[in-house]
Write a protein that binds this DNA or RNA. Structure first.
Length: 300
DNA sequence: TTACGCGATAATACGAATCG
DNA sequence: CGATTCGTATTATCGCGTAA
């Protein structure tokens, strides 16, 4: 005879080395409230705030050490995607991303972190990455890397980059129907001007989605009052499309031909990563250009 | 107090050896 | 011959100490 109630059932195994205990959002709220009451450290705030916009980020993009990130994970502030270092390295390699030295993990907001983000920002942070297939996760990892690369360059040249969350960048035709959901939006604040860019990243190897994207953007462009108000811009920002396969670029080219207004630039991911996204192909003009102000001419 | 590096430890994968 | 166990390398995690 054996008392089964005393046998501890295994937690859901995510992979060899990590498991998570389930946590209801009610429990998470209680924990979040406790932590908010006690006060959060600067480091925790920095990590959470970044993830609210980014959704997922690899260790080397988060402003805390690996050790601290694990501590945050234990507090359920963060969740770690269930892949081992070698697995992650393979994924990064497959997506042309540089493989860093040492351990490699990707973190997202954990249940407690989500509640804190809701409290602090009043926005619904991106969630659900633990359940996503890896391709979907890597799509966002890549998109984030692109934004952070460009933002880094911008800072080197005296611009103040502001990464607008997907949530804030989305245009709504009416409160329930999104009209346009850019993958990312970046504002560069200069001394007396502000440059704004929209981003799309394509994992797929077909041209159809690119064509539909252009249609979508053109539709959004026609709703001038909407985007002027939502984005606080005078002119519709240029669309910067990054793709793994050149065929996607051909889709953009076809769709842009014979259409005016929407400015679209493109690059393949692998080549763009090598030179930090300085040159882009301008589909409207049919030529390579230095899109960002620091590439155009050497001043100062 | 908080962050985090380091060393110890526990958990796991995997190939080899052994069993039935 | 397939299944199970064993041995070992790998590596995630934890506790402690130090520094900011």
């Amino acid at each position: 005879m054996i008392n089964l109630s005393q046998i501890q059932l295994p937690h859901q195994k995510l992979n060899a080395f990590s498991s998570v205990a389930p946590m209801t959002s009610a429990q998470a709220r209680v924990e979040a409230q406790k932590l908010l009451q006690a006060g959060l450290s600067q480091s925790v705030i920095a990590v959470l705030d970044l993830l609210v916009v980014a959704g997922v980020l690899p260790t080397y993009r988060l402003p805390a050490s690996e050790r601290s990130l694990r501590n945050y994970q234990r507090q359920r502030l963060l969740d770690r995607l269930p892949y081992t270092t070698p697995e992650m390295q393979d994924f990064f390699q497959a997506y042309s991303l540089p493989v860093p030295e040492g351990r490699l993990a990707v973190y997202t907001l954990g249940p407690v972190g989500i509640e804190i983000a809701r409290e602090r920002h009043g926005v619904q942070p991106p969630t659900g990455y633990l359940a996503y297939p890896i391709e979907r996760v890597m799509h966002d990892v890549v998109m984030n890397e692109i934004v952070l690369r460009i933002a880094g360059r911008a800072m080197e040249h005296g611009w103040a980059p502001v990464w607008v969350s997907k949530y804030e960048a989305t245009l709504y035709a009416d409160p329930n129907t999104p009209l346009l959901e850019p993958d990312a939006m970046l504002r560069l604040k200069g001394e007396d001007e502000e440059l704004v860019y929209l981003f799309e990243y394509h994992n797929e190897d077909k041209a159809t989605r690119a064509r539909r994207k252009v249609d979508r953007y053109a539709l959004a462009l026609s709703r001038e009052a909407l985007w002027r108000e939502r984005w606080e811009v005078e002119t519709f920002p240029p669309l910067l499309a990054v793709f793994r396969r050149p065929v996607v670029g051909r889709g953009y080219q076809e769709a842009v031909n014979g259409r005016n207004g929407l400015q679209v630039y493109g690059r393949t991911l692998a080549s763009a990563l090598e030179e930090d996204f300085s040159t882009w192909y301008h589909f409207n003009a049919g030529e390579k250009v230095n899109l960002f102000p620091w590439g155009r001419e050497r001043d100062e």
